[in-house]
Computed example of a mutant assay.
Amino acid sequence: MEHAQNAERLRAQLADFWGKPVRGLPRAMDLMSSMYLTASGHDLAHNPQAVSVCLSQCTATADAYRTCDVWVAPHSMAERIASHPLVRHPTLIAENLERTAPARNGLAYFPTPVQLNNLYPVHGIAWHLEGTGERLAISVETITATHLVASRLPPQMAQSTKLPLAPYCPNGIYTLHEGRIAGCGNPHLFGAPDPVNALAVVLAFWDLRAPHNRDSEGPDNTDASEDALTVFQHTRPDHGSKKSGRGRKGQRQSPGKRRIRVIREPTHTPAPPVRPADTTDNTVTVNGIPEPNWKEDTLRWGVSMRHQNRCPNPHQHRAIIEAGGECKPVKVPVKAHVNGPKGRDVDPRRTVRIVPARD
């Protein structure tokens, strides 16, 4: 349920980033301007035609996020996408996208991000199909952590680019039309995959989300491998959804809800190979005696100390350190608790105390 709420929050924050005006223009225009500058070497404001195209793209993308279907990918899918033949092959052949796409507007959230070589981790992908037939165009976005987007940009450009006030941000924007795929800006400076690889990630997700029922007709043929969860619609990027309100007649309004599709993990986790009973592979032995298997034989153990030094800003710690700041640890009380696999007995011979760091 937590991942479904995070995916809905990501959808709402990106919809605001692309569509909500700030001083007359959506915040995404700053990102588009930086991408345009890295590709052309010119300021976007000096090209009225390009400004019009970017504004139209912002509007269309915001509308797509407001109506898109949302998926939560399983943890195992990140590794399988990174090793998918479509992603690893240098060329890509995209066939009938209208028939292949699970939805015309879609967003996939990866709780475990996709790692592609030395690029920024891909926490999400989004696509938007516009038109039909020969006039079909597909827009693709790769989404990464916001604090990473500006780290490769020139210092002056990094300071002038206004990014969303949210954990995630688009770092690659691509369009495929009439067999030609193009991206906005220099993807290397934004830690994003090149246009072909970005499209390959989307197609790999489309392929992996439907490992069963491939003979079924229609775009939505994976109900057997997905769980549909209903979460409160996230309407404000910073304060969460407004779960209560009153209409014109004073009647309490019910909060809006959205359907989030969670792909089941076992569907994408290959079964372990069956080994003969007498095999000793991966078994540690000492003097011919097998050592205990940690996963099967470990008991729980008690932790008795009451204090521990911890970071006062755990959610912003990484961003503060990368910006050159410092997080001095503070001593906080920690209740006595038990660690180890749940459902096991407690080992009375093993105790652990959390020792505070020396001043």
Rank of each mutant, 00 (worst) to 15 (best):
L55C: 04
S52Y: 05
S40G: 01
V51L: 08
G24H: 11
A62V: 02
D43V: 11
T61W: 11
H42F: 14
A28S: 05
Q57S: 14
D63F: 04
S34M: 11
M35L: 13
L25Y: 12
M35S: 06
R27G: 01
G24T: 13
M29A: 10
S34G: 13
A50M: 11
Q57H: 10
L37S: 09
T59Q: 15
S34L: 12
Y65M: 09
Q49S: 12
R23G: 14
S33T: 15
P26N: 09
M29L: 15
T59S: 12
M29H: 04
R23C: 13
C54R: 08
D30P: 12
D30E: 15
T59E: 14
T38I: 07
L44R: 03
L55F: 03
V51S: 00
A39Y: 10
G24E: 15
N47H: 09
H42P: 00
R27K: 14
G41F: 02
A62L: 02
A64F: 05
R23F: 15
S34Q: 06
D63I: 09
A28P: 00
P48W: 07
H42V: 11
S33H: 10
M35A: 09
V51R: 13
G41M: 05
T59K: 12
A39C: 07
L31N: 03
S40P: 00
Y65C: 03
D43F: 10
S52T: 11
D30F: 15
A60E: 06
V53I: 07
V51I: 12
T59H: 13
L31A: 01
P26C: 12
P26Y: 10
Q49L: 14
G41T: 04
A45H: 08
V51K: 09
H42L: 14
T61F: 08
V51F: 05
R23P: 03
Y65R: 01
S40N: 09
L37E: 10
L37M: 11
G41L: 11
S52W: 07
A62S: 09
A62Y: 05
A60Y: 05
A50D: 08
N47I: 05
R23M: 14
H46N: 14
T61K: 05
C58M: 03
T38K: 02
R23E: 15
R23L: 15
A60W: 04
T61M: 08
P26F: 04
P26Q: 06
Y65D: 01
L31K: 02
S40K: 08
L25F: 14
C54K: 03
G24P: 03
S52F: 11
L55D: 00
V51N: 06
D63H: 06
A28K: 00
L25N: 14
S40I: 03
S56H: 05
L55K: 09
A60P: 01
D63T: 02
A50R: 08
P48V: 02
M32D: 05
A62F: 03
L37R: 13
A62T: 03
S33Y: 05
S52V: 11
S52I: 08
L37K: 07
Y65S: 00
V53K: 04
A39E: 14
Q49N: 11
C54A: 14
C54T: 03
M32R: 07
C58S: 06
A28D: 00
V53W: 00
M35I: 04
S56T: 09
M29V: 12
T59G: 10
A50L: 01
A45F: 12
G24Y: 12
L25K: 15
A28Q: 00
T38V: 01
A39N: 07
G24N: 13
A64N: 02
P26K: 08
C58N: 08
